Amino acid sequence: MYRVTTVGNYNLVLSNIMQAQRAQIEAGNRVATQRNGSNLKEFSRDAEILTAMRSVDARLSGYLEQNTTIADKLTTQDFSLTQLGDAASAAKKAIEEAIATGRTDTLMQEMQAQFQIGVAAMNAQYNGKYMFAGGKIDTRPVTAEDLSDLTDPATPLISDFFANDDFITEHKVDDATTVKTGILASNLGTAMLEAFKTMQAFHEDPATSFDGTLSDAQRTFLESQLAVWDSVASDVIDTTAHNGMMQARVDDVKADLVTRQNSLKGMIGGIVDADMPTATVELEKATLALNASSQVFITLRDSSLLSVLK
């Protein structure tokens, strides 16, 4: 036969109170933090998979941060390439206008201006580093400053004016994709500087100097140069288009990474985040249970033999 004692009843009620307090604290923490726990110990059943998912999330965040930087650099490169292409187009236009008007008074001044624009584009920087210098990011890749530099006997080769090396920058934009984002000034500008040198050498010849009315010899020469400048501009356009393709590829990878990370965060949230309606109900139930256990304790205290004898 089960024996009912005052001590036994007290122990049972106190045990119920303690259980209700623990349940209330746990439910209160879930409501306050909106989390099912605060450390991996509290997610022991899912700790291994949670650790793996957080590791993947950190890797995706690293790729996203890097891709943002790469996209910014490619945008800056696009601006410089567009500037270089515009310089080539403007040089060709100056030749066309000289042929059309029969005057060459300002032709070489225009050539000098476009030469300087082109050199500035090839010497463009991103975050203080020369973009088209290969691995020599602290060295200006194009050293020529004036058209007359190109015809200096001390530097007979166009390659003498390029200080870049052959290193092509590559970036791993996700686990499976690597893109080449580097462009070398020597690849960009060799044909252009050759064309400028040809113009300058022709101008420096006293017999053919551009300083007034267009002669037949000058007309023939300038007409032959139109195809040269067409090719120069076309090559720059092709490089600009390739840079645009790299931009699009990086943007596509970035969008995919964002989608993957959002999905992963949803999976992590399914483990870590508390179900707030359920947590709120559990808190209310725990509070009610605690109040009920406390009331039983008070009733038990007031109904003891000692209270009756008093």
Rank of each mutant, 00 (worst) to 15 (best):
E145W: 08
Y130C: 03
Y126K: 00
T143S: 15
K129D: 08
T151H: 12
T155K: 14
A154Y: 09
Q125Y: 03
D149A: 06
L150M: 11
A120D: 13
T155P: 05
N127C: 10
K136A: 06
K136Y: 06
P141L: 05
A120L: 09
V142C: 00
M122G: 15
A133T: 04
N123E: 05
T143P: 09
N123H: 04
T139P: 00
K136H: 07
M122S: 10
V142K: 02
Y126F: 15
F132K: 00
E145I: 08
A124V: 05
D146N: 14
D138Q: 14
N123K: 01
K129A: 09
Q125R: 05
M131W: 01
R140W: 06
T151F: 14
A120Q: 11
D149L: 05
G128L: 12
P141V: 04
E145V: 10
S148G: 09
V142Q: 00
D149M: 05
A121E: 10
A154L: 12
N123T: 02
A120G: 14
D146R: 12
V142Y: 02
Y130F: 15
A154R: 13
M131R: 02
M122P: 08
A124E: 08
K129W: 06
T139A: 02
A154T: 12
L150Q: 11
D146W: 13
M131D: 03
A120F: 09
L147V: 07
L147M: 15
V119Q: 00
V142N: 02
A121P: 10
D138V: 09
Y130H: 10
T151K: 10
D146K: 11
K129P: 07
M131L: 08
T139Q: 02
S148I: 10
Y130P: 03
G128E: 15
E145P: 08
T139S: 01
N127M: 13
V119K: 02
D146A: 13
D149T: 06
N127R: 15
D152K: 04
K129E: 12
E145D: 14
N127I: 09
A120I: 08
I137Q: 15
Y130W: 09
T151S: 13
E145R: 13
P141S: 09
D149W: 06
G128T: 10
G128V: 12
N123F: 00
A121C: 11
A124N: 11
R140L: 10
A124C: 07
V142T: 03
P153D: 10
V142F: 01
A124L: 06
L150D: 09
T151R: 10
G135N: 08
A121T: 13
N123S: 06
L150V: 11
Y130I: 01
T139L: 00
T139N: 04
E145K: 13
D138I: 07
P141Y: 06
L150A: 11
A133M: 05
G135F: 07
I137S: 14
Y126W: 07
D149P: 07
A144P: 06
Y130Q: 03
D152C: 05
L147T: 06
D149C: 07
D138A: 15
G128C: 11
Q125D: 02
T155S: 15
D152M: 09
T151V: 15
N127E: 12
N123Y: 03
D152T: 10
F132Y: 04
F132G: 01
G134V: 03
T155F: 14
A124W: 05
T143A: 15
Y126Q: 02
V142E: 00
